Amino acid sequence: MENAALLKAIIQNAIDGIITIDERGLIETINPAACTLFNYTPEEVIGKNVSFLMPPPDRNQHDEYIRRYQHTGVPHIIGIGREVTGLRKDGTTFPFRLGVSEVEYSGRKIYNGFIHDLSKQKEAEEQLKEYAAHLEELVEERTQSLRETVLALQDAKEEVSLSLEKEKELGQLKSRFVSMASHEFRTPLSAIQLSASLIDKYAQQFESEHITKHVGKIKNAVGNLTTILNDFLSLEKLEAGKVEPTFTSFDLVKLSEEITEEMQMVAKQNQHIIYQHTGKESMVKLDPNLLKNCIFNLVANAIKYSGENTFIEFNTEINAFGCTVVIKDNGIGIPEKDQKHLFEPFFRAHNTGNIPGTGLGLNIVARYTRLMHGSVEFKSIVNQGTSFTISFKKHE
């Protein structure tokens, strides 16, 4: 008796609705939670066919479910997780998750229906859809704004390049403009990056692939623009003579492994950066920041101009003659007619198409390498790949 009283108390105080029906589909018991969900009293439902708590078409199909069970012995649903719709006394409907279990009791079968209201969850899902739609519009607006900014920078680059060819004295003016523009763009870009990260954080609870996709678009666009601004700032410092190498002894292998790990994170799908070092020594005396910038530029180009499912070779060597760094890809290659202009500022090969870039990266690599008393060479064949080699002779 005590166990029966405890079981009754549990059922009466359960958060979810519980209804039991017989083999004919007639309601035998209903707990308070289920009464609240359907807005009925126990007296109004007990003895009635459970189908009256269902809107069409489930109501019309319920008798067929019963007849099928009586004929086959297999109920329509046994288990947890089916989403159905309930019909309240006032005619309104609501969604719920239904779990059904079969119980042998006093020589007969009864069915327990466990009803979990999904109204709030469905409302949240609708709000999420609206939020995702709004975010998609916002992403499109931001993307368009970023496109316009990039186009404006490209136009400014072309105008500055033409001016430099005509009058060298405009170099200082260009440098001031680039520095000012780059710094002015950093503030809104930082705000966009922060906003995208916050949206990503607050949207994690919704687990929406649409939100993740569009936030990723914003971050990628900001990353591309940041790279452009960094190139312009590096060029401005070089033009102004503000870059002075600081020669320091450091572990080349350790630096290269760190670069490999970092760049692998931004590689395309199934692109693999393979790093290998030759030689017993690992210490070199160069400017680690300038060298890191050079390697970053070359590996980033290899990633950009190579396809998915490819390998990028990154090799370093220290021997009796000095130090070399080699980055090799099997990407689109550089047309022979463009190769003589490759290290010129703002120059891009004619086969780059819509691949983004400023035409400054290789110019910066060459100038940084020269500042460290090194040299840059390359070999390239269209549609077969490109290999860049940075060399530094050993100085006693």
Rank of each mutant, 00 (worst) to 15 (best):
T41C: 08
D22T: 11
H272F: 09
H373Y: 10
F247S: 13
G322Q: 04
T72R: 06
Q127E: 13
V284Q: 03
A366I: 01
G279R: 00
D338I: 08
S197G: 10
F296M: 06
D200S: 15
E396Q: 11
M372E: 02
L37P: 04
F185I: 13
G279K: 00
T310P: 01
E2K: 14
M1D: 15
T227N: 11
K120M: 14
N315R: 15
T20R: 01
Y105W: 10
F94D: 02
N3R: 13
I19R: 02
K280T: 15
G113R: 02
A300G: 08
E344Y: 03
E140V: 11
Y368V: 07
G331R: 13
D117M: 05
E126D: 11
K280W: 05
K280L: 12
S234P: 01
D251R: 02
G86C: 05
R147N: 10
K337R: 08
Q121G: 13
V243I: 14
I11V: 14
K201G: 10
G241Q: 03
K168D: 06
L146P: 02
K219S: 11
Q271W: 05
F321E: 15
R142N: 12
L291F: 05
A320I: 05
L198F: 08
V365C: 09
N39F: 02
K48S: 07
K109C: 07
T41P: 04
N60E: 15
M1E: 15
N31C: 05
F321P: 05
P335A: 14
M265K: 15
K166C: 06
F314H: 07
D251H: 04
K201H: 12
N3M: 14
L170K: 09
L7Q: 12
K48G: 04
G331E: 11
T143W: 08
H341N: 15
E123W: 00
N49L: 06
F185V: 06
A221Q: 10
Y305E: 04
T386F: 03
A221I: 07
L255N: 07
N354G: 07
L291T: 08
Q12C: 07
Q70I: 13
T72D: 06
G81S: 10
R24P: 04
K201S: 11
E377T: 13
I273G: 00
V103E: 03
M54A: 11
L37V: 09
R67H: 13
F232S: 06
S387D: 05
S179Q: 14
P335Q: 11
V50E: 07
E262D: 12
G361M: 00
